[in-house]
Structure formats: C-alpha cells, structure tokens
Amino acid sequence: MVNIGLISKAIRETWFSTTAFILAMFTFQVMLAFILPTFQKDLSHVLENLKFVQYIIAALLGTDMAETIGPEALSAMPWVHPVVLTLAWTHAIMFCTRLPAGEIDRGTADVLFALPVSRLGLYLNETIALTGSGLLLVVGGLLGGLLGASWSSAEAPIALSDLVVIAANLFGLYLAVAGLAWMVSAMADRRGRAVGVVFAIVMASFVLNTLATFSESIRRFSAFGLMNYYKPLRVLREHALPVGDLLILLGFAVTCWVIGAIVLARRDIRTV
C-alpha cells in the first residue's frame, strides 16, 4: 500500500508551503513565548483595565470569565492565539483538499487516477504525507515555544512535558480539521468550494466555543465545537494528558477520514 512515489509527489507539491507554515509557526511561538512572560506584569495591568480583551482571552482559553488571567493563562496563550490556530487549520485544509478536489479541479486527476494504484492507496499515501507534515508543523511550534521560553524572564516556565502534551492536543485538533477537509474534498469537484466549506465549518465551531464562554444557552452546544476538546490551560493546571479530548478529536478525524475514503472509492471522477 505504501508507495514512495506518491508520498514524494505529495511532498514535492507541498514542501514550499509546509516550510513556510513551519517557519511562521516557529517564529510566532518564539515571539509569544518570549513576549508574554517577559511583560506579564504590564500585560496583567493592561488587561485589568480592558475587560473586553480579558473576556476574549478567557474565551480563547476556554476558562471561566470570573478567573483572573494569571501566569498559567499567559503561558497557554501562544497555543490558542488565533494566528497559531489559523496556521494549523489552513495547512491542514490546504493539504487535504488537494485530493481529489484539487486534482479534478486542475485536470490532473485523469493522469493520477490512471496509475496502477487503488483510490484507497492514493488516499492512504496522501495521509502518510499529511501526518508527517502536520507533525513537523506542530514540532516547529513546540521548538519555537521552548526557544522563546528559554529567552524569556519567566519565573516559572512551562515544563517540557506539559508543552509536549499541549502540542499533542494541537496535533489532535490538526488531524480533526484534516479529516474534515478530506471528507469534504472527497465529495467535491472544485477545490475552492471544498476549502470554503471546511473553513466555514471550522470557523463556526470556533465561534460556537468562543461564544459559549459568554452565554449559558450557547454553552449547551459547546460539545459540537472542535475547540471544546483543545484546552492548553487545562493541561497546564492539571499536568495530565487530556485522553478524553484527544480520543474525541482522533475519533472525529478517523470517522471523517473513513467516510471520505468510502466516498472516494465509490464516486465518479469526472472532468470539470
């Protein structure tokens, strides 16, 4: 099933954007991991006066608004920053909408699907390439966080084990978005449409979980949002692997992946 040619094709097509995303993730994590603890006192003072920003941060972190934004919350901030999340989601969506929607859209599907590889084989080899790329992206963020923390003047820097657990949680979220993107792409003939649909679902999920912090009535639906299962602050407080959250994210990813595989195996590959 593993085909080096197909994996190298996927890497050849994505290496430039993946490298750019890893560099961006690394740089952003270095900046945030350095800046936030260094200016913690000043930031806390500013946040006290800017209640709305405090609410937004609390919403991103998934904490209760009544809690104060302390050192742990600020340490968790680099992992829930919208830029970091956008980088992870965008990479997953860009990668996973290439097959089959992207291939059909640009007309290369005829050549690719005429090769002696099963559709499931194509899907599997793309998945291997995606998993490797996603892992590099998250490791890039992890290394950036470690480097930034080592330069900062934080009194109690985050333990490496906690950082690894947060990175694993982010990777789970990445795979969940990737699975969703694959499922949508398997049903689409136009890449732009597939990207749009996945972005809309992911953004709706993000908004749902953000608003759930403010509203009790919305909170009842928060289990339907992916961000409900990504809580770096909880990891920092409990120092434990969020097994349940990870299982839900991976379960979602696998379910979507399997649906996508079934759809791809049964659908017509038409010209557009």
Partner: peptide
C-alpha cells in the same frame, strides 16, 4: 492499469 497506458484528450500534468 499495470498493463494499460492512457493519454487523455486534454493532457494536464503537474
């Protein structure tokens, strides 16, 4: 497809 060679009418390649 191991034994088939195919060229589409409108060849699009990477």
């Amino acid at each position: 497809k191991t034994d088939v060679g195919y060229m589409p009418g409108d060849v699009r390649l990477y």
